[in-house]
Each structure stands twice: as structure tokens, then as C-alpha cells.
Design a protein around this nucleic acid. Structure first.
Lengths: 261, 261
DNA sequence: AAATCTTTTTGACCTGCGTCAAGGCAGGCA
DNA sequence: TGCCTGCCTTGACGCAGGTCAAAAAGATTT
């Protein structure tokens, strides 16, 4: 059955993909924008060369100039307490915006670091603000994205506030899986770009606990782990373990022509 | 001057203070707006009669039409899991906006319930969005407020993710104290409008733990508790306990002419 | 003022997970 | 090829804080 959707001509060789051609435009900032509006958004966006693993995109206290959208790869954001220990606040996949928490006072309250080779779109905030005044759909989408961020943080509070270690890791894996799926990747098989220590830190657990849980989940036939590679064998049961209403596979998903290896 | 009941005198309770005259306009949505802009914002805002204790402002899943600013009193927002147990996500004091997490998909993901008699400003979101397109300062402030919310949630993640019970409660009290101060109330003495159970739930602790900590803090001379009333005796030391850089009393504060009684 | 209900306090017990420690494994580099 | 370094796994142990239980202190109703 043919999709009623227009076929987009995507040049895979092109390094700097315009928003119009970007496979992420259905889940990124451009959601809900028309062709001509997209053009104008595209014109304020800058695409620099990719970050290498462990490069910082920005550090705590850096002046805020731009929002960033992840194009490929992944980032973690984290705070550091005065005694130098870090708290991982989030992991960011393609199509997600980073830096929204800096709007408040023009300084980044968190640092952002590449977990692997990562390319980004740089969006000067002043331009974005001005443009969104002219493009209602952009304005609306920006507010929506921020609202979603608030929601996601609320979810995290539930996870940290009242879930057991087991439930936390299960939730985390299900959430990652869904996010990969949404982006057109496999939902049952993926690579973790972050270390056990990052995961533990993010979930409020010791890395040893994370490690133990991975082996336990594997023994119970829920998944298979090999180093960074995760294969979910029983997503449904993992969902039960996470004690969350795992929105099943009904969500919109990006069509990704050559991702069905 | 004796108060007499005259036909033309509006009862105090029904006075609808315009944004221009509202003592909260320095910390609420109007921040940074000029007189005439304020007028226009004011014109879209509706002020209904107050909520009684335990009244719901909205429930989970309710369609999203309006944002609300607390004018007086306080609210809690909370989620409920399928098994019916609730997770308190936040407490909202005068000058704070509620409902920002509903913009994402037009439904409230949390319920909001009055902790005491609470009056609110109702702000139709569609109008706000339209108006903010015309008033850059309003647009900017809306984004700032949302960004602040994200930041606050990030703070909560740190609290839940890596603080001990003691540190959590200390952080909570310091944070409340600062927020009261900002609003022109005493920073060293205030009433908790929420129950121990709400506090515990919010902080990811059992209510028994909260209770024990209150008595412990009192025994250590940090504060005095009497039922709902809290008096901070040694804010500095409490700050140490919270292991957070407690921004001291240097922040802007609302002038409140007759609050010194 | 008695009766009932809710909230808070306090104690006793127990367990989930953090901490410490030691050893395994892979990848980078000489 | 072997060493080094960073990550991961596994075991042993202890404690912070959860759970259960009961009583005290308010609050609300009759």
C-alpha cells in the first residue's frame, strides 16, 4: 500500500541537510511548519562540523546564545556540585533540542558533552525568537517542545521518586527503545552510547546496581546484553517490570527508507 | 477608619486586582512589560472566585484551555499511577504559573488541587499565544518562565537522584523559605500548607522519615516546628545540611507595604 | 463534650541498594 | 605481543530509610 505522503528527495551524501530535507523534521523543531516557513527557519540555522566523543558543546555557566538540535549521535547533559561530582540530567538523541534551560537567565546551568561523534544544528536564539514572532506555527512548536521537556522531567521525577532500581532501569530501557523507534531505528536492538556509570548516575543508582540488573534481566530472558549492545527479547514483560503505561508501538514514526537492514 | 457596609463598596474578597496593581507583577508573567502592554495582558486575564481547600483546579486528562497564575494560597500538582497512588510533582505559590506541561498536547498530564483557599488568574492560552506574538516582552517572559520551570525540575532531579533524606528535607525548606522571601513574606517563619505525607511523597521519602527529620532538626536547634508552623532558627546551618549553594538573601524581593505586622 | 476521623509522632524491625574490594575484558599504544 | 587504562562484573557486608504497628494530638461532627 503506497503512502499518501510526498516522497522527499534526500541526498544522503549531502553533509549539510536543510530542514526541508532532514529526516528528522517530523519530530524536531519544524513540526507543523509549511514549506516557505521552513525555508526561513532553515536560513537562521547553522551546521558546524561534528563534535568528537567527549567534546563539550557547552559548559556550565557558558553564556547562552544558541539552542542546539541533535542531528546524529548523542549527548549527555549534566550538572556538577561544588564538590565536583556530576549528576547526569539527560541523554539527547537526534531530533531533540538542547539548551532550553538556559533561556531563563542567559547562562547554561548544565554542561553538554558528546557521547559519540555527534553533529548538531545551531539555532541562534535571538533569531529564533524574532522569527517565531512572525511564524505562528514556529512559535507554537517552540512552546510545545518546551512543554514536552517539562513533561519529560516530570516523568523523571516519578522514576526517581518512587520506583525501585529494577523499575528504573526497565523504564529507562523502554524509554530509550521508544525514542529510537520514533526516529526510525530498531526498537528491539540498539547500542547504548553512555556508560553504566552514566546510566546509574542518571537513574540515581550505583553503577554496580545497574550492572547487576543487566545480568539479572538477561538471566530472566528479558533481554540480551553484550557490552554496549542491547537486544530486547521481551519488551512487553520489560514494560510490566517498569510499572509504567508503556505507550505501545502506536506512535508516529519516521519513515527511514534504508534503515531496514 | 471604620469599615461600614455600603451598597457600592465591593467586598474585599471580590476585588479583582489588575496586573498593574498586583503586588506579584514583579515575579509573575508581567515581568519586564510596560504599562500599555500590561493593560493588554490584563484584558485577556480572567479572575474567578477562589478555590476552597481540596478543590481541584483541573484533573489529569482535562483539556487544556488556560494557564493559571496563583494569586494567593497554594496548590499542589500530582500524577496518579494506574494503581491509584499519587506522586506529588510540585507545590505552587503566589506568582507561579501552573499548567505549562499541558501545552505539549492540549491535555493536562497532572492534576492540580488547592492546599488551602486559593485564588487564581486564568489566562486563556490561545489569547496569550496571540498576544505574545505582538508583545515581544511578553513572548520573552513566557519562554523565560518555561525555561525556569525546566530548571526547577532539573534541580528536583538532583535532589531525588543523589541527596540523602536529610539533605532533601533541608533543601526543600530552604527552597520554600527563599520562595516566600521573594514574595515579600518572612523567610524564617512560615506555615506549610501541605501535609507531611505530601512532603514525603514530593521528596521521595516516607512520611515517617519526614516526621523524624523534623524532630531531629528541631533537636539540633536548626528550627522549631509546631504542627504546620515552621521557624528557621539557623538558616545558614540548614543550608549546609542541604549541600546546595543556597543563593543567599541577595535576590530581588517584592516590596510589601503592610506586611510587617 | 463525646465520638470519630485524620494527621503526626515514635518505636521496632528488616531489606534494597550503596559501598568497598577484587578480578575480568576490550581496546589503544608502544 | 604485552602493557596499560578504562570500563564492567561479581561478591561480601552494612546501613539508611522503608514498612508495620500503635499511640498521641488535632480536627470535625454530633
Amino acid at each position: 500500500m503506497p503512502t499518501r505522503k510526498l516522497e522527499k528527495v534526500v541526498s544522503l551524501k549531502e553533509i549539510k541537510v536543510a530542514c526541508q530535507a532532514c529526516s528528522l523534521n517530523e519530530i524536531c523543531l519544524p513540526v507543523g511548519m509549511g514549506e516557505t516557513d521552513l525555508d526561513r527557519l532553515d536560513s537562521i540555522i547553522d551546521r558546524k562540523r561534528p563534535l568528537a566523543r567527549n567534546d563539550h558543546l557547552f559548559r556550565i555557566g557558558d553564556p547562552f546564545q544558541c539552542l542546539y538540535a541533535v542531528r546524529s549521535g548523542s549527548l549527555k547533559t549534566y550538572a556538577t556540585s561544588e564538590d565536583g561530582q556530576e549528576q547526569v540530567m539527560g541523554f539527547h538523541l537526534p531530533g531533540e533540542l538542547v539548551g532550553l534551560d538556559a533561556i531563563a537567565d542567559g547562562r547554561h546551568p548544565l554542561a553538554a558533552k558528546a557521547l559519540e561523534t555527534t553533529s548538531l544544528c545551531e539555532i541562534p536564539f535571538a533569531d529564533l525568537e524574532a522569527l517565531s514572532r512572525q511564524l505562528p506555527s514556529l512559535q507554537h512548536q517552540l512552546l510545545r517542545v518546551m512543554s514536552q521537556e517539562i513533561r519529560a522531567d516530570e516523568q523523571n521525577m516519578v522514576t526517581l521518586g518512587q520506583k525501585s532500581a529494577e523499575e528504573r532501569l526497565a523504564s529507562f530501557l523502554i524509554s530509550l527503545s521508544s525514542r529510537f523507534r520514533r526516529r526510525g531505528f530498531s526498537e528491539n536492538q540498539f547500542n547504548l552510547s553512555m556508560s553504566r556509570s552514566d546510566i546509574g548516575n542518571y537513574l540515581g543508582l550505583a553503577l554496580e546496581t545497574v550492572s547487576r540488573l543487566f545480568t539479572r534481566f538477561q538471566n530472566e530472558g528479558l533481554l540480551r546484553v553484550d557490552r554496549k549492545h542491547i537486544e530486547l527479547l521481551d519488551r512487553a514483560r520489560l514494560c510490566m517490570f517498569s510499572s509504567a503505561k508503556c505507550s505501545s508501538s502506536e506512535e508516529p514514526r519516521i519513515l527511514r527508507p534504508n534503515a531496514s537492514s
